[in-house]
């Protein structure tokens, strides 16, 4: 016991307490179970990124020894890293869970979505159309995602249970208050919910948890050699999905990815970190945000807020 003038502080660790990762895990599992209890047709939005991989891992724990009682939904832009797709298929087989794929190419072919043109064209915004169509086609009433509040300022205001109107839109000014752990998932016909079980996790929590639980990840998160270009301060993988400008010379770089989006918009970081331990050290000392490598967030100060209102992840 340390006694200072006006406070008494007990520094001994108490018997009944959870460390931060176990408390976050317990909270996320409670939320995932609550979704299954409150909704008729939930699903997990699976991007192939580390956050949705952690979410799938938590879902497995929540229902063991039963299987995960909802499908994974992957919105395939056609511009994915090949590593993401093969990892996804392995994981789905291993968990014995149903996979639903929504294809952006199909939305384009059907005339539902229009491909962007120009040098920085991407399919990022088109995903929203395919996502909302897929949710509707499968009558999904609760779509769980791995978004975290520490990622971005618009996400800092997100609820665990986030109500969407019949057009899939988010109204940040009119959200339901969320009190204690009493989650209100009631809705009208045609409306749905987005649910974010790992809202309170930070990037560091995710990596520490991945290490503690020994969760497998796609290889692109670890340091590797790749042919890249430097465009507007972002290191992009050279692929068939980007149009090289006249002055751009692809070169081999030692890189890894901090997030996993589409190939043409996800920036890599120069890194030698090829193990989870090295990644954790790298993140502890890094001075830029995770989404700082995302070209999709660089389309203006409110790029995320605008997309979220429209129904984006």
């Amino acid at each position: 016991m340390i006694e200072s003038k006006d406070m008494v502080i007990d520094q001994s660790l108490p018997k009944y307490y959870l460390d931060h990762l176990r408390e976050l895990e317990a909270e996320a599992i409670f939320v995932i179970r609550e979704v299954v209890a409150q909704f008729e047709k939930p699903a997990l939005l699976f991007s192939g990124g580390k956050d949705s991989i952690v979410l799938a891992h938590l879902a497995k724990k929540a229902f063991y020894p039963a299987r995960i009682p909802f499908p994974l939904i992957h919105i395939d832009t056609g511009h994915n890293f090949p590593e993401t797709i093969s990892f996804r298929d392995q994981l789905v087989a291993q968990l014995g869970v149903q996979l639903i794929v929504g294809s952006v190419q199909e939305s384009i072919d059907l005339g539902r979505a229009k491909e962007e043109t120009g040098a920085n064209a991407s399919r990022n915004a088109l995903q929203t159309i395919t996502l909302l169509d897929t949710l509707e086609a499968h009558k999904i009433d609760a779509a769980m995602g791995g978004a975290r509040r520490d990622e971005e300022k618009a996400r800092a205001k997100e609820r665990f249970f986030s109500h969407r109107d019949e057009f899939g839109q988010w109204d940040p000014k009119n959200q339901r208050p969320e009190l204690w752990n009493l989650f209100n998932g009631r809705k009208q016909q045609g409306e749905h919910f987005r649910v974010f079980p790992i809202s309170n996790w930070t990037e560091m929590d995710v990596w520490q948890y991945i290490k503690e639980e020994n969760i497998a990840l796609p290889s692109l998160y670890f340091s590797h050699e790749r042919e890249c270009i430097l465009r507007d301060g972002v290191i992009l993988a050279n692929s068939a999905f980007i149009k090289l400008r006249a002055d751009e010379q692809p070169q081999m770089m030692q890189v890894r990815y901090r997030t996993c989006g589409d190939m043409p918009i996800t920036g890599a970081v120069i890194s030698e970190a090829d193990t989870l331990d090295k990644i954790i050290i790298e993140i502890a000392t890094t001075r830029t945000t995770e989404r700082g490598t995302r070209a999709d967030d660089k389309r203006g100060e409110t790029a995320m807020e605008d997309r979220k209102k429209a129904g984006y992840f």
């Binding site: 520490d150 300022k153 800092a156 205001k157 940040p172 000014k173 309170n200 930070t202």
Partner: peptide
Amino acid sequence: TIDVAYRYFA
């Protein structure tokens, strides 16, 4: 400020 915002540090 309109709504509760959540922030994180360690």
